[in-house]
Design a protein around this nucleic acid. Structure first.
Lengths: 331, 331
DNA sequence: ATGAAAGCGCTAACAT
DNA sequence: ATGTTAGCGCTTTCAT
């Protein structure tokens, strides 16, 4: 593969001049630049960014850390990230941590070894102290969804607001009387925020007549399916689930047991994954902008890279209520 | 960040000795090695693989090219790839091509600029000529699913066999009489192979009494849903779809139109995506080992990297029939 | 067993 | 406007 010296030799100039010419710097006469560009093209020259990074300290590498790339939510965010980084010529170093903190920390080390310029961090396992390696090595970080450290910018969907919106809908439009909130583990920030949104809304509306119960399940399809029996013992007219996968589990339990949705039980989900609209009774849920979330995170990271002394910020995306049929009405 | 010189100075030796010691090469006395390792640890030294790559020509970077990371099939393959590369200390350079050949070719160029050592290529858009850039730059490639060039090893699921298996099941166990094969575009190799498997099996079984029709649709949920009306005009008792997403589309159309599955129409899918088992009438389909596929591809690439003069090979994984309820029987 | 020196491909400071 | 020089962090001959 041709290098800068080859070009210099052919053009009868110094390698430094070639570097200047090819990087579009001033101080190169037009005719010299032209001849350099031409022979570069002729030789099929491509600069070696790894070599350049040694001196510029800019590797052009960005780390993308996800808990699990097979989860449609993270995959969609990743795609948003990818779309903006590609346009700006950055390479993505993908780290699928498999929800394993040890693996995640190993990846953190690799990322710093490889001198990534920045990291987009979508993590459910990282602790604040795990991020010190980035601080030490002057690597920018943008957190997604989970504000792990105040040192870094965070981009997230407003869980509280989404929960407020769907709760208000259930109470005011649907007329729910006996609600069960089927949440994830109480340590999860999403559960905390969404449950608080739900409770606060009930209070704000002054609807103490509405009976609310809470249960905590593993936040996936299976968790929903296997806890529906217990759920039904509350005799609810509606269940608000921590996410759509759980809602799918509840829904399929109902299908298998001859329980009509929405007549006998209304189901409200969260996330608006693709399946939500494909269900035989399409799911009423809260739409989260996953792709845009990824784009915002990447854009923020790049802007911090260009402008190193900006303060960390929070970017909140507003979720959007999506009314379909699982709560018995269509708008 | 500490470098090799810092360590050399502290230990009173030459940087070359440090390099030798840290890379586990022979020709370093035990006590010197020990002191080097100790101070390296003390300084938190981490070698810069980018600098090393300049001279070793081994970047430790592997490109992973996918048509769309949000597609559960590709995501799962990617995870398999990731699991083996991580263990061997390689970094993954992710390229989501969005099924766009231009974007893909731009990524190919980036990959070669970044001196990746090899590429795992899952592509539905690449032409053989597009891969020349890798040959020119001596970059190893392993193709997944789609054998784009005979120059490179390919790892894939045996589409023909899977189609044979499910067809035999439909004919012999289910007793299908009027079958429609709802395939993708006829240019797609998957459509060609699966359709051939279906037809050959019918012929092999000598069942000319079975009426078979073929239709071509866009191979996703929407394509299935929107073509079900036309499908029904054939008065089939069973439809064999090109993949599970299409099957889901057909299924939901049936749900919305009061058509009982499997009584009035049996549905056989392909791929065994997660949703297939979550359907209210779980889908009979062909399971493909996606994760293992990714692992095999990565393992093959690494072995070719270590052993540069091996011939390209083909690795075929056998699919597995999964009988659920959408064809009316349970084994 | 260790050191000295050269160089991977590039950029940047300084000179001219 | 161009060349000279030095050096990024590392590895690898070649001496000793």
């Amino acid at each position: 593969m041709a290098n800068i010296k080859d070009i210099a030799k052919l053009c009868g100039v110094n390698p430094a001049t070639v570097s200047r010419a090819l990087n579009g710097q001033k101080g190169v006469s037009e005719n010299v630049r032209e001849s350099i560009v031409k022979t570069a093209r002729k030789l099929g020259y491509k600069k070696n960014p790894l070599a350049a990074s040694l001196i510029t300290r800019r590797s052009g590498l960005i780390g993308l850390v996800v808990p699990d790339i097979t989860n449609p939510y993270y995959a969609r965010v990743a795609k948003g990230v990818s779309s903006v980084l590609e346009k700006r010529g950055y390479a993505i170093f993908l780290c699928d941590c498999d929800r394993d903190r040890n693996l995640e920390n190993r990846y953190f080390e690799m990322l710093s070894n490889y001198r990534v310029e920045g990291v987009i961090l979508i993590s459910v396992t990282a602790q604040e102290s795990d991020l010190e390696i980035f601080a030490r090595n002057d690597i920018k970080v943008v957190c997604v969804d989970n504000p792990i450290s105040k040192e870094y910018s965070t981009v997230f969907n407003d869980n509280y607001q989404g929960a407020c919106d769907i709760t208000e809908h259930l109470v005011c439009n649907v007329g729910v009387k006996r609600l069960v909130a089927m949440m994830g583990t109480s340590e999860a920030t999403t559960t905390q925020q969404r449950l608080r949104g739900c409770m606060d809304t009930l209070e704000r509306l002054g609807r103490s007549d509405i009976l609310v119960s809470t249960m905590n399940v593993i936040a996936n399809y299976k968790g929903g399916y296997e806890n529906t029996e217990k759920l039904l013992s509350f005799k609810p007219d509606c269940v608000f689930t921590i996410n759509d996968s759980v809602a799918l589990g509840v829904f399929n339990y109902c299908q298998h047991h001859g329980i009509n949705v929405p007549r006998e039980l209304k189901i409200a989900g969260y996330d608006d994954i693709d399946d939500a609209s494909l269900l035989s009774v399409p799911l009423t849920t809260v739409h989260q902008c996953k792709y845009v979330l990824g784009q915002k995170a990447a854009t923020q990271l790049l802007s911090e890279l260009e402008n190193p002394h900006t303060m960390p910020i929070k970017i909140e995306l507003l979720p959007k209520l999506v009314v379909r049929e699982s709560c018995g009405e269509k708008l």
